[in-house]
């Protein structure tokens, strides 16, 4: 796999030359691989929101470079809009940006800005709506008549309809109830599976990240502190706790079991895994 986005030595400083000056991102380098499902975790203020706004050129680095397909995205600042079409970014609580009279029109805002034909826009709107699980019948409704969860889906469809090569979602499930969260994450997973698009999900819910992604990057204090598969990252659970992050509840049970002398891999993070490991352990014990 080759990197689709490469971040090199990125630093972003807010309020330069003022007493409030502070670096939200400090010397961050990372690669995002073509087709992967990447999770970025970090607590509030760890720099994750600032980082992702650099990936589609909404923010300009104070220093450092962002490469998309090996090209510096700021090489030609006039073309930055094309970068935004290729790297779609869904903000936190995206339902607050809906503005059109109908769901259909709102989803087509992005594709229209791309200058696509009516026909192509229509196809994309319908595809995007299907991906996020919106019923065709809702397309002619006003987005403001929908429930909170449906509005969120409309907003996400608005970015998916641009058919970006990288889809970045900032806390896509924040504020949804358990059922809403589960079904939205399922939609995102199947979008990733079917389209093969690179997906980056930012979250502070460890459970959510653990269950969905191929690889995790952990941010703390404006820098990357860990990166690897969920298994690799959660095997360093103590360090995660030390930087003020939660670890999945299952990992905590495993940690506690180890502390009490049970021989178990502490890096398990799903219920099924821990259940399997424990049953194997019991089976082993019973046989000897």
């Amino acid at each position: 796999m080759k990197p689709i986005i490469r971040v090199e030595n990125l630093t972003h400083t807010y309020g330069q030359d003022t007493p409030f000056c502070r670096s939200a991102v400090d010397g961050v380098s990372l690669d995002i691989m073509e087709g992967e499902f990447l999770g970025i975790i970090g607590h509030t203020g760890s720099g994750k929101s600032t980082l992702i706004q650099h990936l589609n050129g909404l923010l300009r680095p104070t220093s450092g470079t962002i490469y998309l397909d090996g090209r510096d995205i700021w090489a030609d600042p006039k073309k930055i809009r094309d970068v935004r079409f290729q790297v779609g970014l869904v903000f936190q609580y995206p339902e607050y940006q809906l503005f059109e009279e109908t769901v259909y029109k709102d989803i087509s805002f992005g594709p229209k800005n791309m200058g696509l034909s009516e026909q192509e826009i229509d196809r994309r709107v319908r595809d995007a709506a299907a991906f996020v699980g919106l019923d065709e019948g809702l397309l002619d409704k006003s987005p403001f008549e929908l429930s909170g969860g449906q509005k969120r889906r409309v907003a996400i469809a608005g970015v998916i309809a641009m058919e970006p090569r990288v889809l970045i979602l900032d806390e896509p499930s924040a504020g949804l109830d358990p059922a809403g969260r589960r079904s939205l994450l399922e939609n995102i997973r199947s979008y990733h599976r079917q389209k093969g698009t690179t997906v980056v999900m930012v979250s502070h819910s460890m459970d959510e990240v653990a269950e969905n992604v191929d690889r995790i990057i952990v941010l703390a204090d404006a820098g990357v502190v860990m990166s690897g598969t969920p298994h690799e990252v959660f095997s360093r659970a103590e360090e995660l706790v030390a930087v003020g992050l939660n670890v999945p509840q299952v990992t905590r049970v495993a940690m506690e079991l180890r502390r009490r002398g049970v021989e178990i891999d502490p890096a398990v993070y799903t219920v099924a895994e821990l259940r399997k490991a424990l049953s194997a352990l019991k089976g082993g014990k019973a046989s000897c």
Partner: peptide, 16 residues
């Protein structure tokens, strides 16, 4: 702050 956020979000959808 909210205006800033909405502007960024619409820019991310290609608003100019």
């Amino acid at each position: 702050e909210e205006t800033d956020k909405i502007m960024s979000a619409q820019r991310a959808r290609g608003a100019d």
